[in-house]
Nucleic acid binder design. Structure first.
Lengths: 224, 224
DNA sequence: AATAAATGACCGACTGTCGGTCGGTAATAT
DNA sequence: ATATTACCGACCGACAGTCGGTCATTTATT
C-alpha cells in the first residue's frame, strides 16, 4: 500500500505519533519500528523526513519550547502587571495548566518520570527550558531591580538558580503522582512548596509572603 | 587463554576497567566488548559478575557515592568546626580536590559533559548525590538553626535547593573546561560563583560574606 | 592419600533488537 | 517527457544479553 501525502503533513504525522509513543513508552523504549508501524509507513519514509531519532526528539522538544516561549513572552511583555504579578503568573499558570489537564498530566508524569528510559528526554527538555526561560524571566527581575522592588545583584544568574530550584518541585510533583499518596507525603510536598516560595523571596530580596507562587488548594486538589 | 581469579578480584578488575572506559569514552560509547577486550576475558565472564551494563553503572556510582558519603560524614561529625566552617569545607574541598587533580578533572569534564552519551550517567550520579548528601548536610543546617546562626524554617528542603543550585556551578565549570577561555567567559563564571554564594547566604538567613564558599584565586588558577 | 562430587569461574558462538542505509519504484509537478 | 520527491523494504552493523558447555579448585567420601 502506498499513500502519498504532502511533505508537511507527513512530517507532522510522524511527529505527533512520536509524541504519543514517547509519552506512552518513553523515548528509549519507543522504537522507530513502533512509530512507522503505527502510521503504516516504511523505514525509509521515516528517514526521508528525519535524519535520526535524535533529530526527531530535538524537534519534539523544540516545538514544545516554542509554545512555552510564547506563553512566557506574553506574560513578560504585559505592561499591566508588576514584576511581582508576572512572576506569580508564571508559576501559577504552570500549576493551573496541570490542574486543567489533570489526567493527561498524571499519565505523562508516570510515563516520563517513573522510568529510566526518559532521562535523556527530560534532561534535554529542562536544559532547553533553562536556555529560553532564563533571559525572559531575567527581564522581569531586571525590571524589578530597576524599580527597586527586588534587591539582587545578578538577575540572570539568579533566574538560573530559581529555575534549578524549581526542578525540585517538578520532580517531587511527578513523584507524588506516581506513588500512593499518604497524609505524610502530602505534608512533605507542601513543605517543599512552601520552602521553595520562601527561597524565591529571599533570593529576590523581598519580604516573605509578598508573592503567592503556589496555591495550596490547587495543589491539594490536584493530588486527590 | 584461561586465567582464573578470585571472585572479588575479578569483579573489581571489571569495575576498575569500566571506570576508566566510562571516563574515557562515556557510558554509552564504552561497550561491553571494550571492557572485556581490555581485560582479556569472555563475554560470559562479564555476565557472570554483572547481570547487565546498567547494574555495572549502578555499582560504579554506588562506590563513588560511598566515598563521598565518608568524606561528608567526617566533616559533619567534626565537632571542632562551626556550622559555617563545615559548610565552607564541603564546597571548598570539592574545589580543592579539583585543583589537585586538575588534568584528570579536565579530561573527565570533557568526556562526561561534552557529549550526550553521558546524560544518563550524570543524571543518576547527581540524583544519588542528592539522596545521600541531603540528610548529611541537613544535619549541619539543623545545628545552625539550633544555635541560631542560621535562620530558616525547613533545613532538609533548603539543602535540597542549595544542592540543586550548585548544579549550576558544576555544569558551568565543566563548560569552562571544555571551551576556549576568554576574559569574558571567566568574568561570567565568576559572577555565577559569586551569585551562588550570595544565594546560599540568603537561604541560610545570614549576612553576606559570612562564609567564603569558593576561593576566587583557586578558580582562576584552575581555569588557566 | 586417592577419588569422586560439587562448585563456580570462564569461554565464545549465537540471538534478538534497534538505529540507520541504500537502491529502487511510483506518484506528482514542471 | 522529464525531473523531482514521497515512499518502499531488504539489508547492514553495532550492541546488549544468552546459553550450553569446559575446566580448575574446593569439599566430601572411602
Amino acid at each position: 500500500m502506498r499513500t502519498v501525502k504532502k511533505h508537511d503533513e507527513r512530517r507532522k504525522e510522524i511527529l505527533k505519533t512520536a509524541e504519543k509513543l514517547f509519552s506512552k513508552k518513553g523515548f528509549a523504549k519507543a522504537t522507530i519500528a513502533d512509530i512507522i508501524n503505527t502510521i503504516g509507513i516504511a523505514k525509509g519514509t521515516f528517514y526521508h523526513y528525519y535524519k535520526s531519532k535524535e533529530e526527531l526528539l530535538n524537534e519534539f522538544i523544540y516545538i514544545e519550547m516554542e509554545k512555552t516561549k510564547e506563553r512566557l513572552e506574553s506574560i513578560v511583555n504585559d505592561n499591566s502587571m508588576s514584576p511581582y504579578e508576572k512572576l506569580a503568573q508564571i508559576f501559577r499558570k504552570s500549576m493551573h495548566h496541570k490542574t486543567i489537564n489533570k489526567s493527561r498530566v498524571k499519565m505523562l508524569a508516570k510515563a516520563l518520570y517513573n522510568n529510566d528510559n526518559n532521562i535523556v528526554l527530560l534532561h534535554k527538555r529542562s536544559q532547553k527550558y533553562l536556555e529560553i526561560a532564563t533571559p525572559l524571566i531575567g527581564q522581569i527581575l531586571k525590571e524589578g531591580v530597576a524599580s527597586k522592588t527586588f534587591k539582587l545583584a545578578y538577575p540572570i544568574q539568579t533566574v538560573d538558580l530559581i529555575l534549578r530550584m524549581s526542578h525540585s518541585i517538578d520532580e517531587n510533583f511527578a513523584k507524588m503522582l506516581t506513588q500512593s499518596i499518604t497524609e505524610e507525603s502530602i505534608s512533605d510536598f507542601l513543605k517543599i512548596c512552601e520552602n521553595f516560595s520562601i527561597a524565591v523571596h529571599r533570593l529576590l530580596g523581598i519580604k516573605e509572603n509578598q508573592i503567592e507562587l503556589i496555591y495550596k488548594n490547587e495543589v491539594l486538589e490536584l493530588l486527590n
